[in-house]
């Protein structure tokens, strides 16, 4: 249990109870960022990052110089006005920041590409039924096989770093959704295994300290073993070529459209190509 990162709101009473733990603090009010960071540091919490959920575009967020160097995950509906964003670039260059954006209205993940090419790490927010798989494949190719260096685009960079052709690679961690790494807390301290379960009020315990060793927690074990269920369906995701990196994340949408398979197969191909190229670039020692 101690190795888990706790994703929690910035509630002061809750933070007081989490002393010494590694946390991702969820915030939605920009004015809370600086005092929450100060409070967390005072409590000697290990801040993995501040997950700032914005309902306004990135270009309109009032970024504060005090946030410089602090690990930030900014979830926003879109990039917004490019010119307004570029006015903020000089400040943002000093930030330790990753932007999480859904697909944009044009459907081509243009904002992700712009941000990455300008040197900002970005992650694609994938939802089950709104993914433009062809465009996502183009973005992945750009991310991994681009002509010049640019900032990482997730989850592609994560898969590249973790990929082993003989094992599963689960990129849920990019979104703090891997229950073997992250637990999600509400303001009362109730513990859930995913953001979705947190929203639904499906908890595995009422208090982090009471949970104890998770390997003995029935709900937890059931949840982390749930991937086995895919093998019980005769034509389920487990029989798909993309299974090793997808792990059934898009099972719901797959019933209507199997493009997720093509994407994940392509992802593995490109990652293997990328790794091969990287191996070729090994340099011999120099005198």
């Amino acid at each position: 249990m101690n190795s888990h990162i706790l994703v929690c709101p910035g509630d002061i009473n809750l933070l007081n109870r989490l002393g010494g733990k590694t946390v991702v603090i969820r915030l939605s009010d920009f004015e809370d960022v600086t005092p929450t960071i100060e409070r967390a540091k005072h409590l000697q919490l290990d801040i993995k990052c501040i997950a700032l959920h914005s309902d306004i575009p990135v270009s309109d967020i009032p970024f504060n110089r005090d946030w410089e160097g602090e690990p930030l995950a900014v979830f926003a509906p879109d990039l917004g006005n490019l010119r307004d964003f570029i006015k903020k670039i000089a400040l943002l260059r000093h930030f330790n920041i990753r932007f999480y954006l859904p697909n944009d209205s044009g459907g081509c993940y243009t904002s992700h590409r712009i941000l990455s090419s300008l040197g900002f790490s970005v992650a694609v927010l994938l939802n089950d039924d709104g993914v433009n798989w062809d465009a996502l494949c183009d973005l992945m190719t750009y991310s991994l096989l681009g002509l010049v260096r640019h900032a990482p685009i997730e989850p592609f960079q994560y898969v590249t770093a973790q990929y082993d052709r003989n094992r599963h690679t689960d990129y849920a961690s990019v979104y703090f959704e891997d229950p073997t790494s992250f637990l999600h807390l509400d303001g009362e301290g109730h513990v859930a295994l995913s953001p979705d379960e947190l929203r639904r009020g499906s908890f595995i315990g009422v208090n982090v300290d009471e949970i104890g060793d998770l390997s003995g927690n029935v709900e937890y074990v059931k949840r982390i073993e749930s991937w086995r269920n895919f093998f019980l369906e005769t034509n389920g995701c487990a029989y798909c070529q993309g299974w090793r990196v997808c792990l059934g994340k898009f099972a719901q949408g797959r019933k209507n459209n199997s493009s997720c398979k093509d994407f994940h197969v392509e992802l593995m191909d490109v990652v293997e190509q990328y790794q091969t190229m990287k191996d070729k670039n090994k340099t011999v020692w120099q005198p």
Partner: peptide
């Protein structure tokens, strides 16, 4: 010209 292609050209020129 699309943004995707503009970025590709910019990369091509930068390379």
């Amino acid at each position: 010209l699309s943004w995707e292609d503009l970025i590709y050209i910019a990369d091509f020129m930068e390379a």
